[in-house]
Design a protein around this nucleic acid. Structure first.
Lengths: 117, 117
DNA sequence: CTCCTGTCTAGATGACTATCTAATCAGCCG
DNA sequence: CGGCTGATTAGATAGTCATCTAGACAGGAG
């Protein structure tokens, strides 16, 4: 089995929807959107996302995320990054030795718009 | 043990924070905020919140949420409402026979602001 | 008071998740 | 190639969660 390490998987693209206060979500929309919110529902992932979105260059090296700031092991960080990636909130790219992550802005904006009251 | 059914519990008041893209969240802020996002991370809760926030009167009777739209039992709906309530996203009040829920607007707005990019 | 309806709590169960250690893959350097 | 570092995957385990059924509580009607 030749499973490759594919960092750039393209997931959950373009979900939808007006603000939740305007029209009731249907089940299918809710399922997609809940996947994204669920990914935000962990303190470590939220901090990772914050570090990624606030990176000055628009992206950040994983090597800058595995420092002592988060007191979990490297594989755990990697697991959380994968969760954020599969939710469509970030995307990653390997360049030589290092892997860089950046936010998927339109999906983050969509979540923000959804909560606008 | 005289545990009363208190629908109006006051939880998680006023958490904080500039947009995640402006400054990295610290661990304490992330914990509070993740609790709210986690509550949004379930399709049924997201739909419930949508129904509540989009209710024409600004609130909605639980009896209007336990219909056939959601194919889970009444207690499960009740459980999800409790989760949303304890996360500080909605608040409820009994008036006679019925219980009404309404959104906690400032907390929803806070989440939206947090995701602004 | 007694019955009925609406809503919630309690307890059980199966599924999922966060975390770890160990192992693997990718790329660089000598 | 052989070894080194960065990052991910695999597999195990303990804890959490969504859901159900059964039972309890609140309030109104007879």
């Amino acid at each position: 089995m030749s499973k490759q390490l594919v960092v750039l998987d393209t997931p959950a693209d373009q979900v939808c929807c007006p603000p939740i206060a305007e029209a009731a979500l249907d089940a299918a929309q809710a399922t997609d959107l809940a996947r994204m919110f669920k990914a935000l529902g962990d303190p470590i992932r939220l901090r990772l996302l914050s570090r990624i979105t606030s990176a000055p260059e628009g992206e950040i090296c994983v090597c800058d995320l595995t420092g002592d700031d988060f007191d979990v092991t490297g594989p755990t960080i990697s697991h959380h990054l994968k969760t954020l990636r599969e939710a469509g909130l970030i995307e990653g790219e390997r360049r030589g030795t290092w892997v860089y992550y950046r936010p998927v802005v339109e999906n983050l904006r969509q979540l923000a718009a959804l909560l606008a009251i």
